[in-house]
Design a protein around this nucleic acid. Structure first.
Length: 806
DNA sequence: CAGGGGCCCATTTTT
DNA sequence: TGGGCCCCTG
């Protein structure tokens, strides 16, 4: 069927405007289509979302309910029904990846729409395209450049310095944040509310205005401007607005819960005429409030667009009932939701598993073992490939424990959202040198570094070496030696190659003689080979980072006996890891996981302060907590078959060992859908790190109760016999306790109901942070009342105070 | 100009 | 604890 329709829209060779003006009355031809088979696979809700073509539609699509399918089918339907040709559909996504995927899927069966959808893309890419056409309306030329955040920062820094502000107290980065915030709210300098005029030492607005002038002079825009300028143009040039209101007959928006105010206005202006706007989203998955997203946009949709059809997609095709119930239980604690009830026709499945550990290292170790067990097939489940498993963390620094552990046991992993350390070019180069020092016959390593750094040994020289080596049936290094002896190369190349061969000989001798420590040797190799110098002389902006990575690599060597030992561990992983191939466990942040799904998901680090993040709660209070809770919801709903939540009783935070309380979200897990596991090394159930913390949880015990934290504090858990027993047992079994923890005596901080840095609330003085603890007296820095010494019984944890309206 | 030392701070991230 | 940034020095 593809051909026929391709023909119909074969006008895409025209200029865009011609194509637009020519807007073909497609309906007759479309009607001629025999059937619309693409509608067949939809459930009633999806079908309604697809077939309600006119007027505003809000598609509330819970996790795993076939949102993308519905969205794409709707687009196809609009086109096949002849309501619009592909050029008249505005389809907005948040990431280029999402747009790309959607394009790809629309081209394939059952849709076969091969006419490119010109207006499918991110807010930014579409706006940039529009802005190039109308740049002069905001004083720019259409050739304007788009600054990245680095450029932006450099510019702002100049302005801050020029304004005699103390760069330390008023960092340009902060100004960038403030300005971005204003732009996200579609506030031009003249529109910034008076209430915010105190920002940035009272200079914020002025600097913002100066920055905008500077950008204009440079004929440049930053990311925020791309949208802001278009909103300005739409607001001040009705003719332009009208042009696009007419052009875009239908508007579709994905991830609507993530839109900020500027994007909202942009959409509302464009949709104002026909109101044919379909927003797809899930208020429960709004996790980008910190970068300006307004959940309010989705919550207010019906008010903004009176008469809107709201369609709820609630049938979940992804997860088992227990997983859905757990996720629903957690998210139910949020207020002001639009509300959806996910259901599934699946009957079976494992409960969500919950386990506590002594510390973060043990948690990583346990998860590693679980992953290996799942690979073999466990608990009657079929073996799972590594691609089917993921570890989702709150903050990227949590990844390190897993990377370290997986590297040690040789478990292949991939980090989503950031290149892996051992995959970086400079690390691979350095490793190649080490490999050659250990095994001179490593030809791959030789090929890799023979001309790195540049030695004037190009393709031709390498070919000569290879030919010689092959002719004499020797490794490449020996081939190179023969080339040097026979003077088969000329001039500079010969000299350099001779030097390299001599160096390799020397390093190899050192390895064998064990004259120096392997760390010193590694440093020597990197220096003498000229590799370090190569990056030092490199002027590209990446060079310093690469040097840092090399330092890091050398530091990592300290954990091994010798170079060989290190290489063995890493090479096991790297060698059968041909680029992006092979099965790997995924490690990523919860944010990065949105939109993905895995049969098995691990959710480590569910500890108050880490998750929910203390900072989130401090900065945004209840709002912040609710966003964290949505993050928990996103995490759980990534799992198809098996979801494992874990926490550690102790964790190193900024180099300090800290006792951790299980996350309050654990309390919110419905007990009937959770299986509490006993941590390894602990005999029987009893008081395990998990057992204790979990059974302290009313939810898990099935007891009525509401405030785990207060109870836990009251019960003085860290001083409890159970806790001591755990500590002793762990020691006896030589469990995964780092030496610091092993020797740790339980100090006043842990015994007190509060801990240093804890956020607390005082009836009279308000909120504050604990500075120090002496017996039952606390030194607290109150936000408003200053630093005071207070007796502990007048203080409640800020967590508990959250329930008090403020 | 590059590197060392000291100091401050410490999520989430796309465009 | 440790990474990034700035400043100072050789």
């Amino acid at each position: 069927m593809g051909h026929r329709w391709r023909y119909v829209w074969g006008m895409s060779d025209y200029s865009e405007d011609d194509a637009f003006e020519a807007a073909v009355p497609l309906s007759q031809r479309a009607m001629a289509r025999p059937a619309m088979p693409y509608l067949d696979g939809l459930n009633p809700a999806q079908r309604q979302a697809v077939e309600t073509l006119d007027g505003p539609v809000l598609m509330l699509a819970g996790a795993g309910t076939g949102k993308t399918k519905a969205l794409m089918t709707r687009i196809a339907h609009l086109i096949f029904k002849g309501r619009a040709n592909p050029d008249q559909v505005l389809a907005v996504t948040f990431t280029n990846k999402a747009a790309k995927e959607m394009r790809a899927r629309l081209e394939k069966e059952p849709f076969g729409i091969e006419t490119p959808m010109r207006w499918m893309g991110t807010f930014h890419s579409i706006s940039a395209k529009l802005l190039r056409r109308h740049a002069e309306l905001v004083g720019l030329q259409s050739s304007f450049t788009i600054l990245d955040s680095d450029d932006q920062l450099r510019l702002l820094k100049q302005l801050v310095v020029a304004s005699d502000l103390d760069e330390k107290r008023w960092p340009p980065r902060m100004l960038a944040g403030i300005i971005d915030g204003w732009k996200n709210k579609a506030l031009t300098p003249d529109k910034v509310p008076v209430a915010e005029s105190g920002a940035f030492d009272g200079r914020g607005v002025d600097l913002y205005a100066a920055y905008q002038r500077r950008l204009r002079d440079l004929n440049a825009v930053d990311f925020g401007d791309i949208l802001l300028h278009m909103v300005t143009i739409f607001q001040t040039h009705p003719d332009v607005l009208h042009q696009y209101q007419t052009r875009f007959r239908y508007i579709l928006v994905d991830e609507y819960q993530d839109t900020n105010v500027a994007q909202y206005l942009w959409l509302r202006l464009l949709a104002a005429g026909h109101k044919n706007i379909c927003c797809v989203g899930d208020d429960d998955q709004s996790i980008y409030g910190w970068r300006g997203a307004e959940v309010g946009n989705i919550l207010r949709f019906e008010a903004d667009f009176p008469g809107a059809h709201v369609v709820r997609l609630e049938e979940n095709y992804r997860s088992t009932p227990h997983i859905l119930a757990a996720a629903s239980g957690v998210i139910a604690a949020n207020k002001g939701r639009l509300g959806k009830t996910l259901f599934t026709s699946v009957k079976e499945g494992e409960k969500v598993r919950l386990i506590g550990h002594w510390d973060g290292e043990e948690e990583a170790r346990w998860i590693g073992e679980e992953i290996e067990a799942s690979q073999r097939g466990t608990r009657g489940m079929a073996p799972l490939g590594l691609d089917n498993m993921a570890i989702l963390v709150r903050a990227s620094h949590q990844m390190r424990a897993f990377e370290d552990r997986f590297l040690t046991i040789g478990l292949p992993y991939r980090v989503i959202g950031g290149p892996r350390f051992y995959e970086r070019m400079e690390i691979r180069d350095a490793m190649a040198y080490f490999r050659l020092a250990v095994s001179p016959a490593d030809d791959l390593a030789f090929e890799r570094i023979v001309n790195t750094p540049k030695r004037g040994l190009g393709d031709k020289a390498v070919q000569t070496i290879q030919r010689t080596a092959r002719a004499n049936d020797v490794p490449l290094v020996e081939g190179a030696r023969l080339v040097c002896q026979g003077r088969l190369l000329g001039g500079k190349g010969l000299k350099e190659l001779t030097e390299l061969v001599a160096g390799l000989d020397r390093w190899h001798a050192q390895v064998r003689a064990e004259a120096d420590t392997h760390v010193e040797l590694a440093e020597m190799i990197l220096d003498e080979s000229g590799y370090t110098g190569f990056w030092q002389n490199d002027k590209t902006p990446e060079a310093p980072g690469r040097l840092e990575n090399l330092k890091e690599l050398v530091k990592a060597l300290e954990n091994f006996e010798n170079l060989q030992g290190f290489l063995e561990h890493v090479s096991l992983i790297m060698d059968n890891e041909t680029e992006e191939q092979g099965e790997k466990v995924s490690i990523m942040t919860l944010h990065a996981a949105k939109g993905l799904e895995f049969p098995a998901v691990f959710l480590p680090g569910w500890e108050d302060g880490l998750f929910p993040s203390q900072r989130s709660m401090d900065e945004s209070g209840l709002k912040g907590l609710e966003e964290e809770r949505r993050l928990a919801y996103v995490g759980i709903t990534r799992a198809e078959e098996l979801c494992t939540i874990s926490f550690a009783a102790n964790r190193r935070v900024y180099g300090q060992w800290q006792s951790q309380m299980p996350s309050r979200f654990i309390d919110e897990l419905p007990a009937d859908h959770v299986e509490v596991l006993t941590p390894p090394g602990l005999y029987g159930g009893g008081y395990g790190a998990a057992g204790m913390a979990a059974s302290a949880s009313p939810a898990i015990m099935g007891a009525a109760g509401s405030d785990l934290h207060q109870k836990a504090h009251d019960a003085d858990v860290y001083n409890s016999p159970g806790w001591r027993r755990l500590q002793t047992r762990s020691q006896q079994r030589g469990m995964a306790m780092p030496s610091e923890a092993r020797n740790m005596t339980i100090d006043a901080t842990a015994i007190s109901a509060f801990c240093v840095d804890e956020r607390v609330f005082h009836q009279k003085f308000g909120y504050g942070n604990v500075l120090a603890i002496e017996g039952d007296k606390l030194e607290i820095a109150f936000d408003k009342a200053g630093t005071k010494h207070v007796v502990g019984r007048f203080i409640v944890s800020a967590d508990a105070a959250d329930d008090v309206p403020f």
